[in-house]
């Protein structure tokens, strides 16, 4: 049986979620709780906060503190070419079909600090599509959007990214895409010349355009089932007929109401195509 102290902590977080919505307008009520509880506990531990009251004081008096909290509680861990087989499949199965459009629109939903965005842009560049593609990169968090725009990643990650790039079918020298400086790798800003960075909250905002491809990888796992369904419907509204949807390796359309209207183009890599 769950311990009463744990139940009490969870109850306090529920109250906090309501207060955050009232105070800042961010709605976490549809988020998967196991992760929220863990992230809040973890954040409190890192900041040396011993109880909920100690968290609430700075949280509601200091919007900068809240931004830090927001970035930490909404997981922003990402990497370039995560699951190389996904990007390889995108290159082989999706981009050739997208190339038939005169102008391509892509939505990178929950782009976080931009690693996935730059991976995608590199792919498009190598397939000769980048110049006629517009990417909308959105995230709930303004701070990570600013980071995404910069395209500066720790140089310590470069060996792993290089290996992943080649595993994803990379055709060039990976080192040609960035310059190293003071422990950082700054990626060529030409790659994101046609990218619009835009704050968007999947939990509350609506569809804002039509896309040929939507990427939303490892975002839905942080949502409860209802919110997942809302977001998938939002994607459905935002995809052209025959458009593509790419999810994370452990996310699926299978349990969703939109599933009958989609084909799995690549089941293992969770790439779906909207039917005509």
């Amino acid at each position: 049986m769950k311990l009463s102290s744990d139940a009490q902590f969870e109850q306090e977080v529920e109250v906090l979620i309501g207060e955050i919505k009232q105070h800042y307008g961010y709605d976490f009520s549809g988020y998967a709780r196991a992760s929220v509880y863990r992230r809040v506990k973890r954040f409190m531990g890192q900041k040396g906060l011993e109880n909920m009251q100690q968290l609430r004081e700075p949280l509601f008096s200091d919007s900068f503190f809240f931004e830090v909290f927001l970035q930490d509680v909404t997981v922003n861990v990402t990497e370039m070419f995560r699951d190389p087989s996904f990007f390889l499949s995108l290159r082989q199965n999706v981009l050739p079909l997208l190339s038939t459009y005169p102008y391509i629109k892509i939505w990178d939903a929950g782009c976080s600090t931009g690693e996935e965005l730059f991976s995608l842009a590199i792919l498009l560049q190598e397939e000769g599509l980048l110049n006629r593609t517009k990417i909308y990169a959105t995230d709930i968090n303004q701070k990570v959007l600013r980071q995404a725009k910069e395209g500066i990643f720790p140089v310590s990650r470069i060996p792993a990214y290089t290996a992943a790039y080649y595993a994803a079918g990379g055709k060039q020298e990976f080192s040609g895409y960035y310059r190293s400086n003071y422990g950082n790798a700054k990626f060529n800003s030409e790659l994101v010349r046609n990218v619009v960075f835009y704050p968007h909250n999947l939990a509350t905002d609506s569809s804002f355009n039509e896309f040929h491809l939507i990427l939303c990888r490892n975002v839905l796992i942080y949502f409860g089932r209802e919110l997942q369904e809302r977001v998938l419907n939002l994607f459905d509204e935002s995809l052209v007929s025959l458009g593509y949807l790419g999810l994370g390796k452990k996310e699926t359309l299978a349990m969703s109401g939109i599933s009958p209207y989609y084909n799995a183009v690549d089941k293992t890599n969770r790439i779906y195509r909207k039917l005509n």
Partner: peptide, 21 residues
């Protein structure tokens, strides 16, 4: 547990995957 994800449990006794640190 799948590779590259943490495995959490929800109160309704379902799994929740997590790709945090």
């Amino acid at each position: 547990a799948p590779p590259n994800y943490h495995v959490l449990l929800e109160n309704d006794r379902t799994f929740a995957l997590d790709d945090s640190e």
